[in-house]
């Protein structure tokens, strides 16, 4: 069964981009445009991995991450931070990787595969 990746970013174009990349590589996807809705989506969709922007309206990435990982079933979910902010590598300490925009889709796929142990 294909793994499911949740893409969280406030820019719909970037969400479309990442979703296309992941689907083209055989993953299932779900999407959210801010931290608040991302929590609900995660609860409903049960993703296996999350790509997360840092700066978003309503609720920033790090706060969403803390809230989500407080839930037992998501406490170890791999998160890849994808952001345009500089100096973000410590924003989420347990992130499996931090990718700066703009990125190379091949790199993202490579990191996702490693994170999912494939």
């Amino acid at each position: 069964m294909p793994k499911k990746i949740m893409v969280v970013d406030d820019d719909p174009d970037i969400v479309d981009y990442l979703v296309s990349v992941f689907e083209d590589h055989g993953y299932e996807t779900c999407r959210a445009s801010d931290g608040k809705s991302a929590y609900d989506v995660a609860m409903a969709e049960k993703p296996d991995l999350i790509t997360l922007d840092i700066e978003m309206p309503h609720e920033w990435g790090p706060r969403f991450y803390r809230r989500l990982t407080n839930e037992a079933e998501f406490s170890d979910i791999p998160v890849i931070v994808i952001s345009g902010l500089s100096g973000i590598h410590l924003a989420i300490r347990r992130a499996v990787a931090t990718i700066k925009k703009p990125f190379d889709p091949a790199d993202v796929i490579q990191i996702v595969r490693e994170a999912l142990g494939e």
């Binding site: 970037i14 479309d16 981009y17 990442l18 296309s20 345009g84 925009k101 703009p102």
Partner: peptide, 21 residues
Amino acid sequence: MSHGVKGMLTSLDGGIYRLES
């Protein structure tokens, strides 16, 4: 603006990727 510029560049990349694919 550099933050915004990076977002735009990523979106452009995304557009091109999706156009090609």
